[in-house]
């Protein structure tokens, strides 16, 4: 019974956090103003060194972008900007 309370509490917290996250949009502009290069530098380094933009072609960057959106839980905006930046070097 005690354990199920923990689980329900955890799932409720998760749900509330997602709802708040979806609703809160006040300082988004600051993040949206960031360039793809800046987002690339900030996000790739969280797990590994940043790859050179010339390393892959455009189609491969799209595939890697989709892979990293999933694996690193990047937002759609971050993924799109980073992929566009990486493609711009080709």
């Amino acid at each position: 019974m005690k354990k199920s309370k923990y689980i329900i509490g955890f799932l409720f917290s998760l749900l509330m956090t997602i709802i708040i996250a979806q609703g809160c949009s006040s300082a988004k502009q600051i993040v949206e103003a960031k360039s793809g290069a800046q987002l690339w530098a900030e996000n790739c380094i969280r797990c590994h060194n940043g790859p050179s933009p010339t390393e892959f072609n455009d189609e491969q960057w799209k595939t890697i972008g989709l892979h990293m959106q999933d694996r690193a839980n990047l937002t759609k905006m971050e993924t799109d900007k980073i992929v566009e930046f990486l493609k711009s070097a080709n």
Partner: peptide, 13 residues
Amino acid sequence: RGGLQVGKSKLSY
């Protein structure tokens, strides 16, 4: 799963 912008912060779930 996914990533969401929460103001200046970010949430991954």
